[in-house]
Amino acid sequence: MKEFERKQLLERVNREGATVGATIPETIGVQGDEVDLQAFVFEIKRRDTVPNGERERVERAKKNLRRERLQRLQRIEDGEVSYAEGERLVESIIGIDRALNALEGLGPADLEREAEAQEAADRKRWMKFLRKALGHEDTGHSTRGRL
């Protein structure tokens, strides 16, 4: 592969918006194993959040995808592949990026913690209302135990 071709390929990988319109590969070889990447991402994405039991699996998948992306990018950077193989690597890297973007956008599903935080906020508002209604406005003194 010629130097300018290598630079073109690297520019395509690093281009902002490279994943726009890109598809997630159906399967991909990651760390020596074939992974049904598209099915995995759609299964996790369908849930909107990552359940506690799946969080470790998703984090491990993201770590392996990042490692695989780096290895493929390194092959292009080193110039050890033909231009045609470089094209295939670029497409797979962009597909990996698309999958990573989809997985990164998911938040943890910790409904118990959210419910506890909501309950604590409600309790705080209620206590503030009671203090105000009973004429115990907060004057810098603790009213703990007086209500």
Rank of each mutant, 00 (worst) to 15 (best):
R113A: 15
S142P: 02
R57Y: 06
K132S: 10
K2H: 09
H141S: 11
T23M: 11
R75N: 10
A133T: 07
R69Q: 09
Y83R: 15
E34L: 13
A39E: 11
K2L: 12
E85W: 08
Q71C: 04
L111M: 01
E91R: 14
M127F: 08
A22D: 06
A18H: 03
R88W: 04
H141Q: 11
R46Y: 04
H141V: 14
K45G: 05
M1P: 03
L106N: 08
D48F: 09
E43A: 12
L65W: 01
R66D: 08
E112T: 08
Q118G: 08
E114Q: 14
L89T: 04
E43Y: 05
A84M: 12
E116Y: 04
Q71P: 00
R15F: 02
T139W: 04
W126M: 11
A18P: 02
F40W: 02
L111V: 12
A99H: 02
A121E: 15
R46P: 00
G29D: 14
A102N: 12
S142L: 06
E80D: 12
G53S: 09
K63A: 12
Q71N: 11
V58I: 04
V41L: 11
R146A: 07
N52T: 00
L9M: 15
F129W: 07
A121S: 10
T19H: 04
R55A: 09
K128E: 15
V81Y: 04
E87R: 05
F42A: 07
L103Y: 07
R144F: 08
R131M: 14
D97P: 00
G29L: 15
G140S: 08
E119W: 05
E34W: 02
K63N: 06
L147K: 10
R67E: 12
E87P: 00
V50W: 05
L65R: 03
K132P: 00
E116S: 02
I96P: 01
K124M: 11
G140Y: 05
Y83F: 15
A18E: 06
K7A: 10
L73T: 08
I96A: 05
P25K: 14
E104Q: 13
A22L: 13
G86D: 10
A39M: 08
R75A: 15
R146N: 11
E34H: 03
A102V: 11
